[in-house]
């Protein structure tokens, strides 16, 4: 049953009184899919492109959910992994003629390795110190990408221009639409994987480490291993997002992957709800659209407007969109219960 893939933290266990599983999640998923598939046929191609980008950010934010929300490690440096993913794909396509589709898993693996390696020294750092170390990574990355050392491949400050793939099999859709569907499919797949992780033995170990590292160790959880792997897996998600973004924008340049991007992803994580995988989509939409909305309100004061919107959102949804959704669902369910037979 589809319910298994979108289960909440507890699926029913044989021998125990079963939880009342609501079919909301299932219907929500079906509705979402229907809308998501229909949208590109009704929207202008620029909006389709924007939605693609929002989904790409959402994928990157899923990486942060696993790292920060689930495992309790902070990162202000995920722009670096996003950039490494984008450049891995771009260099492979531009220099080695690798097909775009193959660059995605390669970018994921490369970022996993980088994330894992970065996670090793990060083991010694907690909370704000880890945030600082990752901040340093974010600051360094654009400069490393510009460096003359790699200029031959990366094109230095010029960056690399890429070409969007056309829809395969002669499908009668534009390349924007095709990239949208591809991103949607990859995003869903990665979201399901992430939810599987959260609801598994591995996910429980990650949460246990966040909740109580001492007790986690006493239960036999190898904290160092799980923390570094969480860093690697988080970077993997973000790296795949980076690779997709390079192609979607058809251009990679060092200054696309500055600290601003890292902060943007972090904001997306928080407004979505740090522990919710589906809410990453809300985070992605926020990251993409709210700056534009702010700019349309006032060009000169876009930054201030963005700030006000952000504060309002956090004030109204202190535990993110996921928290709000849960609150509403609880209210509705409670009403349904009162009317219901029991």
């Amino acid at each position: 049953m589809a319910q298994q893939d979108i289960s909440f933290s507890d699926t029913a266990v044989r021998g125990l009184p079963s939880v009342e599983q609501n079919s909301w999640a299932l219907w929500g998923t079906v509705l979402f899919l229907a809308v998501a598939i229909a949208l590109p046929f009704f929207l202008r191609s620029f909006v389709v492109f924007q939605l693609t980008l929002a989904m790409i950010y959402a994928i990157a934010i899923i990486g942060l959910v696993l790292l920060t929300g689930i495992n309790g490690q902070f990162s202000l440096g995920h722009s670096a992994f996003f950039g490494i993913g984008a450049y891995t794909a771009a260099v492979l396509m531009d220099q080695f003629g690798v097909s775009f589709y193959w660059t995605l898993p390669v970018a994921g693996v490369v970022c996993f390795v980088f994330g894992f390696l970065f996670g090793l020294p990060a083991l010694r750092l907690e909370g704000i110190y880890l945030a600082l170390a990752t901040f340093a990574l974010a600051i360094a990355m654009p400069q490393i990408l510009k460096s003359s050392l790699f200029e031959h491949w990366t094109g230095g400050v010029q960056g690399i221009v890429l070409i969007k793939p056309d829809a395969p099999f002669g499908l009668p859709i534009s390349s924007d639409q095709w990239l949208y569907f591809l991103t949607l499919a990859i995003g869903l797949m990665l979201a399901v994987c992430a939810m599987n992780i959260v609801n598994s033995r591995t996910g429980r170990a990650l949460i246990a480490i966040r909740d109580n590292p001492i007790a986690a160790r006493a239960m036999g959880i190898d904290i160092s291993l799980y923390k570094t792997l969480a860093f690697g897996v988080s970077a993997l998600f973000t790296g795949i997002a980076g690779a997709l973004s390079g192609v979607a924008i058809q251009f990679v340049a060092p200054d696309s992957f500055t600290f601003n991007l890292a902060i943007g992803l972090f904001v997306g994580l928080v407004v979505g709800g740090v522990q919710s995988i589906p809410a990453a989509l809300f985070g992605g939409l926020f990251v993409l659209f709210v700056p534009n909305i702010a700019e349309s309100v006032s060009k000169g004061l876009a930054g201030a407007v963005y700030g006000v919107i952000l504060i309002l959102v956090i004030y109204m949804m202190p535990s993110g969109a996921a928290g709000l959704a849960r609150l509403v669902a609880d209210k509705v369910l409670m009403k349904a219960h009162r009317k219901g037979p029991r």
């Binding site: 033995r201 949460i207 109580n212 959880i221």
Partner: peptide, 13 residues
């Protein structure tokens, strides 16, 4: 205990 988890999940850990 792992305070954000259910009783069942604590035992599973």
């Amino acid at each position: 205990l792992f305070r954000s988890m259910s009783v069942l999940d604590n035992v599973r850990v």
